[in-house]
Nucleic acid binder design. Sequence first.
DNA 1: GGAAATTTTGACCAGTTGGAAAAATGTTAG
DNA 2: CTAACATTTTTCCAACTGGTCAAAATTTCC
Lengths: 245, 245
Amino acid sequence: MSGKKLKAVEHHPVSAKRQHKADAKAAATHPPPRQRPLTRIQKEKQNIILEAALEVFSVHGFRGSTIDQIAEVAGMSKPNLLYYFPRKEEIHRRLIAALLDTWLAPLRDFDEHGDPFTEIRSYIRRKLEMARDFPRESRLFANEMLQGAPRISEMIEIDLKALVDEKAKILLTWMEQGRLARTDPYHLIFSIWATTQHYADFDVQVRAVLGKGRNGEGRFEDAARYLEQLFMHGLSPKPRVNGSA
Amino acid sequence: MSGKKLKAVEHHPVSAKRQHKADAKAAATHPPPRQRPLTRIQKEKQNIILEAALEVFSVHGFRGSTIDQIAEVAGMSKPNLLYYFPRKEEIHRRLIAALLDTWLAPLRDFDEHGDPFTEIRSYIRRKLEMARDFPRESRLFANEMLQGAPRISEMIEIDLKALVDEKAKILLTWMEQGRLARTDPYHLIFSIWATTQHYADFDVQVRAVLGKGRNGEGRFEDAARYLEQLFMHGLSPKPRVNGSA
DNA sequence: GGAAATTTTGACCAGTTGGAAAAATGTTAG
DNA sequence: CTAACATTTTTCCAACTGGTCAAAATTTCC
């Protein structure tokens, strides 16, 4: 349903506080067979679990989620789930790793050689589509941020920062060329993130406020229209070139 | 430190799944004396607890937080804490109730008779100040939203919606009067919420991206400047009235 | 078909968690 | 001083949690 391009980044903080007693044995019945190329069934089950875990983690956060919950959503028993992911943290790590990759793709596509407004508009559009189509991923990310990003601090301090720095530079160039209003490129990017992800993270609120009326999918199109205008012209009224209303 | 205008809204969902066995007895030694006007010490202790709970809940969410954690931050034992708030949920409820009140104050002050841009600008400013000065409250709110606002759905579906409807109407009037660009007032409000609260909720990310440089308090001023421009004129470059750069 | 490997299940465990009971320690008004 | 009350601490518990383990059920491969 959602986990499209997984990628298994493998970071291994290894900092398990309480390692119980599972030592270097590692080859008993429990862990899914190492070395071997990972059977089709294993991949399927892992995806089912990751999908279920996304569902749960994105709502309750890491600490607030239990393996039992995830197992139930995944339709399997807890020990069975633990057969595929020996540790709760491992599931979360995998989700986050996959997420970060997908999540930043739109920003990576930001093209230096394109037209500033076309680039910005399509970036907003893509982010908005992701908020619509992958709200759980957005919430998982938000949850992690709210907690101070304990598990991904290096990733955002290094990879993300580098990427944003790069794109900010592009924006600055455009500004110097007079093709874009001179302003803070970092906060510009923040504002795009904020306004688009809001529709995923605060979905309940958005729906509640818009009321029973057109809170179907229309809100995303309305949002797209509104944001386009906002980022283009702001809220200043049109200079009123032709006659009155 | 933070809980200014408490208000004790009293909602009582009462849906405790596991009621253990505490029945109508209710008058043992545990509960803080009912009826009596609530001594000064009681208020103080309650505030200490609420303060600690805010600290914990805002980071880990309701389910992810434990009474032990809160008690430790509050500098008291768990049973002692439970003497003042017999239930974990009760603490959370109190926090949320107080929060909603404070949180919406800036929007309430939105004045129909003011100048559109002055009103919008000062609304943005106030929200930004709140993000800076009360980030935990913002995160607590965000956490609740991420979880689908299970404990405050009626409140946002009724009170919040009514308030926003009212203010949206004002915005519409301004638009019709040609004093504000014609656009969707609801999404306009969403965008203000999103862009301002972002600085509290995604603080880690913002700081990481801005880097070690001026991530002190400067970011809030930069944000204020940027947002002012965004909401005023958008990102279109100045018409270039006078000469070149 | 059957041995080997994989997957699933059921029983179990130690540590945590929300909360109860009651005893112990203040505090205060008469 | 002391009885009545308020507060705090100690002890305890049942349910929940992350995780283990051996055995049973199933699949895979020759």
